[in-house]
Amino acid sequence: MTETEAAPRAIRTAVVGFGLSGSVFHAPLLDADSNYSLDIIATSNAGRQEAATARYPGVRTVPDGRAVLDRADSLDLVVLGTPPATHYPLAKAALEAGLDVVVDKPFVVSSVQGEELIALARDRGRVLTVFQNRRWDGDYLTLRKLLDAQALGKVLRFESRFERWTPSIAKAWKARATADDGGGVLFDLGSHLIDQALQLFGPARVVHAELKARRSDERADDDVFLVLRHHAGVLTHLSMNMLCAQQAPRFRVLGSVGGFTKHGVDPQEPYIVAGGSPLDEDYGVEAPEWAGTLGRDGHLDRLPTARGNYPEFYRLLAEKILDGGAQSPHPLPVNPEDAVQVLTIIEKARELASLGS
């Protein structure tokens, strides 16, 4: 290979935050993709620093985002996996330092902040995207294929849920966070559910919203139900519940000629938590017993779940960055304007719920 044919330099990357987001999603996905070099992990927790260096020999650990930005000249990309209230100031500082930025969901805590960051990225010529990884859940990919094939006919109702039994709040920042800080299940799991609904069925407005705090230590919300009416006519029911002793289907989609029902959750997160790698042959493959059902009662077929593919987010991002960055014709893995639309829905839901309380 000649000098002119040399392979492009790996995208020099720092991950800020090494809790669930950084340790289970971002760092493993980046480490598994040869287009990236995982150079810095920022965490103030000594135990997490030790875990980071043990799992990624050669990575440098620093205490916080400020220490990462002090090394901006040796980086190309910053990935933010920190609490939501920190997203706006950290992303703003990173863009101003000339870095491309990935922000975990929720993007920021208000649509105004989101629009400001998008404008700043545009002015600075930087890549800005949001980690809406559940666009690559296996069950969601399966449903997309069904809709593309019009297997359900005209979709009339879409039900989507994230329900868990978590009677106490394990993370200190979540126990302290109010809705103004980006706390609560609507910002957390709701960001995924709303994003998926908008991607599947297009723009929508909130027609009903219920927000409750059931747990004694919850300062925002942990039991949420939203109804969206899409411009295309689909009615969407979204449920998020952290105190759910019996869980309903993950998806139930009703159409004019058939329906689709799916239980269970995507296996990619627990697979990594258990020590697996995105490079493993079994990564993203769901057990056959969790297959969904397609058709009508009395005429149901089992439908195997498509393989989940979170690595696709970073593959698309590398394609964008390495082919000219913000000026590249390649699409972003997630357009941040989509994340602003999610925030707008969240804001409208809070307004509607407060009027009905």
Results as ranks from 00 to 15, higher is better:
Thr61Glu: 03
Ala14Ser: 01
Ala220Met: 02
Cys244Phe: 00
Ser239Asn: 12
Arg219Lys: 13
Asn335Phe: 05
Leu352Ser: 03
His26Asn: 05
Ala85Val: 11
Gly233Leu: 11
Arg307Ser: 05
Val334Asn: 11
Ala6Trp: 07
Arg55Ile: 10
Gly202Cys: 00
Leu317Met: 02
Leu90Ala: 15
Lys145Tyr: 02
Ser34Asp: 14
Ala119Asn: 09
Phe18Ser: 00
Arg302Ala: 10
Asp33His: 10
Pro329Asn: 10
Glu289Met: 12
Ala209Tyr: 02
Pro167Asp: 03
Gly182Asp: 07
Asn133Pro: 02
Gly58His: 04
Lys171Asn: 12
Glu210Asn: 05
Pro63Cys: 03
Gln150Tyr: 08
Ala46Pro: 09
Leu146Ser: 01
Ala353Cys: 03
Arg122Gly: 12
Ala179Glu: 13
His192Cys: 09
Ala149Arg: 15
Glu163Thr: 10
Val285Phe: 09
Phe187Lys: 09
Ala10Tyr: 02
Arg307Ala: 10
Pro8Gly: 03
Phe18Val: 10
Arg214Glu: 13
Asn309His: 14
Ser328Cys: 07
Glu5Asp: 15
Ala170Ser: 13
Leu146Ala: 05
Ala306Pro: 06
Gly190Leu: 01
Asp282Cys: 09
Leu99Asn: 04
Pro83Tyr: 09
Val253Asp: 08
Val253Cys: 00
Asp266His: 07
Asp222Trp: 01
Leu147Trp: 01
Asn45Leu: 08
Asp181Tyr: 06
Val15Phe: 09
Leu152His: 04
Ala54Leu: 04
Asp222Pro: 02
Val273Asp: 12
Ala91Met: 07
Leu30Phe: 03
Gly58Pro: 06
Leu189Phe: 14
Thr293Gly: 07
Arg122Ile: 04
Phe25Gln: 14
Asp64Pro: 04
Pro28Glu: 09
Glu163Val: 08
Gln247Ser: 06
Glu269Cys: 06
Val273Leu: 15
Arg55Asp: 10
Lys348Thr: 15
Ala248Tyr: 08
